[in-house]
Design a protein around this nucleic acid. Structure first.
Length: 196
DNA sequence: TAGGCGATGCTCT
DNA sequence: GAGCATCGCCTAG
């Protein structure tokens, strides 16, 4: 598993959201390592009414304003965490939400954390993948290219064709097609009906 | 198998 | 006090 370098990733939130499909998210926890291949992302661009950064910096979204390739982790609905990759220069406020992974390594650990062995349910959905890789607020702001506990590795295989759709679970600007996923991959979340 | 809905707690207004 | 980038259980078909 080889670390991604900054010069391998495109500038701009939408292009980064596409480029991250197929890359691998690696988690090094005290209890062991685990990893998954990114199969679904959503872009939250500058000036996007659906973005947490839209109303400016606050305590919760502060790390969304870090320079590109940092983790922005926050708690949603009191129960689940969501993980984003920042995508612009410092103080711009944009990120790519990682919505689903295909489990690759540390399956035992992932199954124990998720309390299920049903492969399809292990990392499908932003809250689930955070639980699967033990990603929580302690990892908010870490550098995903240089970090030791959580980092990004280069694509493990050539990705299949990319699909796009509206984003899931939001009310504002919901018509914009800023969700990207690997077509035909069973580990993708959301509606099965796909469009591109 | 798909869709409805309650739990849950934090953040911002 | 409202709303939220969700999850998992339950029910109906």
């Amino acid at each position: 598993m080889r670390r991604l370098r900054a010069d391998e990733l495109p500038a701009g939130t939408v292009d980064l959201a596409k480029a991250l499909i197929g890359c691998v998210l690696v988690r090094n926890a005290p209890e062991g390592g685990s990893a998954g291949r990114i199969v679904e992302t959503e872009a939250y661009v500058i000036g996007d009414p659906a973005s947490h950064a839209y109303r400016g910096k606050s305590r919760r979204n502060a790390s969304m304003f870090l320079a590109a390739h940092r983790a922005y982790v926050y708690k949603i609905y009191g129960t689940s965490f969501c993980m984003n990759v920042t995508s612009e220069r410092a103080n711009e406020g944009a990120a790519v939400l990682v919505r689903a992974l295909e489990p690759l390594a540390g399956l035992d650990l992932i199954e124990r954390r998720r309390r299920t062995t049903r492969a399809i349910d292990l990392c499908r959905g932003p809250g689930r993948l955070c639980q699967a890789l033990a990603i929580d607020a302690a990892l908010d702001g870490v550098d995903l290219l240089r970090g030791r506990e959580l980092w990004l590795a280069a694509a493990s295989a050539d990705p299949r064709p990319l699909g796009t759709s509206r984003r899931i679970g939001i009310t504002k600007a919901s018509r914009r097609r800023l969700r990207f996923f690997e077509r035909g991959n069973p580990f993708v979340s959301g509606p099965k009906k796909m469009s591109w």
